[in-house]
Design a protein around this nucleic acid. Structure first.
Lengths: 150, 150
DNA sequence: GTAGATAGTCTGCCCATGCATATCATTGAC
DNA sequence: GTCAATGATATGCATGGGCAGACTATCTAC
């Protein structure tokens, strides 16, 4: 077809495993786990209005999310505050400290990614990243085009 | 950096999930499971000289691989034959029927992938696939450049 | 007020996975 | 020949995940 050798799914799965292997030691150096990082990242652009929405955003069962939130809250990396307009809801938001931890992890991960992509010529790399983000956002209700910056 | 919004890992993970969701009903229509397809695909280019090597290739525990091989062998989709030069080893190979099942799954999956990539302009798509395969092969000892065809 | 719905929490069940061990057949070194 | 090493297999253990049910607090409808 287009010189395509493997299934897309196989390639994505292999790359996912590579990135997990590369990120795990980085996160451990910052004393957080993969799920912690996923949750903190999900809160970066905006606080989650409910825990159920946060659970859906990170594709995790809401009951399994609770111990993670407990741990992150006890470490003051995020806050759970009752929504004043509906006190059943807990608004989950990053604290300044949580934002700082996320940022420092992000620096190391960006460096790892840059090294990982080093063998790809810059023009192709830009196209690759662009298409990657476009495809990943196909059904993702997350960030819109408006926060393309950074 | 390069207009990069998400972590590579997050994007790859999301795309992997998308492809699993898209492939699962296709494979079910062909009456095989994801692991079956993974194993059959791993045997496509060449038979596995030992089951341990096959297990490593598909990143699965060797003891957990056995029931899968049992099932596929009982359905005549692959064969386990003792290696004449070392009869402890079982050479795992696709049968003609296994190759046919794999091919028919592949047709449907390729169609699904084409639809998935439809929104990407052809030139960018080619670059994307090229870089994707290059990156996925970074540490992968699998196929070499020589079978770029298809 | 009462009743029903919903968010968060806790608990337990079931399944898949990784890992470690034991067994058996086979091989190779001695 | 004996013996250590190896491949395939079976089994059990611990972990982690999805999911369902129950319970509490809270909200909305009436």
């Amino acid at each position: 077809m287009t010189g395509q050798r493997h299934d897309l799914g196989a390639s994505f799965a292999r790359l996912t495993r590579m990135m997990i292997d590369a990120e795990t030691p980085i996160l451990r150096a910052h004393e957080i786990e993969m799920w912690d990082y996923t949750v903190l990242s999900a809160l970066e652009s905006a606080a989650a209005p409910t825990q159920a929405e946060l659970a859906a955003a990170v594709h995790r069962d809401k009951t399994r999310l609770i111990p993670i939130l407990d741990r992150l809250e006890s470490r003051r990396l995020l806050s759970r505050t009752p929504d004043p307009t509906d006190r059943r809801n807990r608004v989950v938001a990053l604290t300044d400290e949580g934002r700082a931890v996320l940022a420092s992890c992000r620096v190391d991960i960006r460096a790892m990614e840059a090294e990982f992509l080093a063998s790809v010529p810059p023009a192709k790399r830009r196209t690759f990243i662009e298409v990657l983000n476009q495809l990943a956002d196909l059904t993702a209700p997350g960030r819109s085009q408006s926060d393309d910056r950074e």
